[in-house]
Design a protein around this nucleic acid. Structure first.
Lengths: 128, 128
DNA sequence: GGTTGACTTCGCGTGCACTCGAACTGGAAG
DNA sequence: CTTCCAGTTCGAGTGCACGCGAAGTCAACC
């Protein structure tokens, strides 16, 4: 990472706030290989670039859609290998998207159950 | 529970298969108070009635929509207290439904990110 | 009537994703 | 120069939701 190009870089704390994770988690993600080693300043402190933050943001979306950390690591490894893995990464995303769609369909079904129960409770309350 | 009324009752194994949980989990749910103590046969083995299975099914839906076991227990306690808690139970479901709806909205957003990435990969693959 | 297999309780173990405490360091403000 | 804060590494701890092995029991079948 070329820190000398005077980009705005963020500290762990700032980056954590930006992406909605804790500093603990940010360091842990790096340790787990979900994030390539982040650049450091002269004092050895992490400096997150905009690219780093974008990457972290993407990770939060993958995480939120239920992708296990294991798979996120696999994806990060592919990304680090460059353009040769573009197809593999796309395949990974497509497979994940299909899981997300299934999940959404499940939720729709579950929502029906909730609505049904709520209606029942409403009716039962009416009869008191 | 009136077992003498010759309903079809199920063993743990059968009930587990029906609702898609393991026998371990079924016993654990009972121990955790998510399920009222299940009727037993003369040999001390659990016999699940249709009502029990329905209740378990509902629990699986709550669980699948992300309700913590803690909240499911709270709900089970309310249900055991009878009609006086109907309104409370409805409120609980309505609060949960609103969380589920938020979750679904999140997933929609996350899906957009996935689609965006997939499109990008497609384009990048095209340029090779 | 012995074997089989599913049940019982009990309590410990597991996997996941963080979360935190301890001990330390370095830069900036008063 | 001291104080203070935010950072550092390391390893241990937490919370949740189960999962499982052990040791024993019992009904059913051959």
């Amino acid at each position: 990472m070329d820190i000398s190009t005077r980009e705005t870089t963020l500290t762990v704390g700032e980056a954590a706030e930006r992406v909605g994770l804790t500093t603990y988690t940010l360091r842990w993600y790096e340790q787990e290989g979900l994030v390539a080693p982040v650049g450091r300043d002269s004092a050895g402190r992490r400096r997150y670039t905009e690219r780093d933050v974008d990457w972290l943001f993407l990770l939060t979306r993958l995480r939120r859609t239920g992708m296990p950390v294991r798979d996120m690591r696999r994806y990060a490894e592919l990304a680090r290998q460059g353009d040769a893995t573009l197809a593999a990464r796309r395949a990974l995303f497509e497979a994940h998207r299909s899981r997300v769609l299934s999940r959404m369909a499940e939720l729709e079904e579950d929502l029906k159950v909730l609505n049904y129960k709520i209606d029942n409770y409403r009716r039962a309350e009416g009869c008191r």
